[in-house]
């Protein structure tokens, strides 16, 4: 694939639709999937615990002066 060129035929305009397309999720009945899910739950729980409170206000307050 490294040296292949192709005609530009796939100019996409459905970007925003793609953004909100559903995420692939593991089949719920597999053991590995359940383990993966509980790992993710555990991670997100931990991150919930450290995220700044009032996300909207915090993000709005992060204002920087210009840089390089």
């Amino acid at each position: 694939m490294a040296s292949q060129e192709q005609k530009n035929t796939s100019s996409r305009t459905e970007e925003e639709q793609l953004e909100d397309s559903p995420l692939p999720t593991p089949a719920p009945d597999s053991g590995a999937a359940q383990a993966a899910t509980s790992g993710v739950d555990d991670l997100l729980d931990e991150i919930d615990g450290v995220l700044e409170t009032n996300a909207e206000e915090f993000v709005r307050g992060f204002v920087q002066k210009g840089g390089q």
């Binding site: 694939m1 490294a2 192709q6 005609k7 035929t9 796939s10």
Partner: peptide
């Protein structure tokens, strides 16, 4: 940058197009 699904091709001066990944492979 906006194409995080890595689906787009990008036009070259010679009229052809490559994906960002193809350019990196080159």
């Amino acid at each position: 940058s906006h194409d995080w699904r890595l689906a787009k091709t990008h036009p070259l001066s010679n009229g052809r197009s490559l994906t960002a990944l193809q350019i990196q492979w080159r």
